[in-house]
Design a protein around this nucleic acid. Structure first.
Lengths: 161, 161
DNA sequence: GTCATATTGACAGCATGATGTCAATATGTA
DNA sequence: TACATATTGACATCATGCTGTCAATATGAC
């Protein structure tokens, strides 16, 4: 019977976890948009900038890597090119599918974003510490979240890198 | 120096937490959309149905409770009414602001959704358990996530209930 | 009772995710 | 080589969040 009781309590925590993860993800999203907004960017553009900074990747490759639909990334990439943050460089391997490369302007923007994010991470760490979170607990939480992601994947729900 | 080292390690976990929370939230979203989709609904409609099921609430009140913009909830509510899942009932307190009430059809849909979600929660709990998560760790993760939400709120990033 | 202020719903428009379809292009196999 | 299949970008369209503006309506201070 012990196992049954344990399982029941466990299952009842799931809806709470779902709600809290949504809540925290929403707060993180606002936070990230705030950081990106300070540089006149958005999170979507930031993600594509970051993934494209490696260079030598087509839009379709970036989309797969980011876990978004190809067309969504295509639109964001086109906007980045329009704004001069990136450019299309011809791809020897595929005449119709150029590589997305950052321009100097785009590289600068990404560097600014990275620096701003680092500052904000420190601030959030301080706030979390003040809220009573310690490193051990945070590490446990991370482990649980990753295991939940793994569990979701076994059920066929893709997760995004 | 101990405190400094601890803080540094802590701050470095933050970006990992952000990435993993995004990832898990994305998986949960897909999962929820799947559940809602089986009944021909969406998560947005589900949320509004659920919040409206209490009865006696205006669209603006629902929006505040859900943490969404008033206009977003308005649109979803209008769609629910169009589809016969809800109806507007005159509000004595405000001539222009009716209460959103579920119809029998809407109540049935919500009951179906709730039942389906319960089943899915059990399945996910089993998968998580198999992935090696135990109740104690899950509870710790929940606590950390809530403390992070609280920390975010102190920084002015609203979280959604 | 009056009037400034806040709230509300309607409407228009934007951002960013999704999907579906089509033609051009690679790719792998017979 | 030839052809079936997969991949890719372009384009259209939808879903669902946001914002801003306006008029109607409550609300509260005086």
């Amino acid at each position: 019977m012990q196992k049954k009781v344990k399982t029941r309590g466990f299952a009842e925590l799931i809806p709470l976890l779902v709600a809290d993860v949504y809540q925290l993800a929403g707060a993180f999203r606002q936070w990230g948009d705030g950081i990106a907004g300070e540089v006149g960017q958005t999170q979507a553009r930031w993600q594509v900038l970051s993934a494209a900074s490696v260079g030598g990747r087509t839009v379709a490759q970036l989309a797969r890597r980011l876990g978004y639909a190809r067309q969504s990334v295509q639109r964001t990439a086109d906007l980045l090119v329009t704004d001069g943050l990136a450019k299309y460089a011809s791809n020897m391997d595929h005449r119709k599918s150029p590589h997305l490369e950052l321009t100097q302007h785009g590289d600068d923007a990404l560097k600014t974003l990275t620096a701003a994010a680092g500052q904000e991470h420190k601030k959030l760490a301080a706030a979390a510490s003040a809220a009573g979170v310690n490193t051990t607990e945070l590490q446990t939480a991370l482990d649980v979240i990753r295991q939940m992601c793994a569990a979701m994947e076994t059920k066929g729900f893709a997760t995004r890198p």
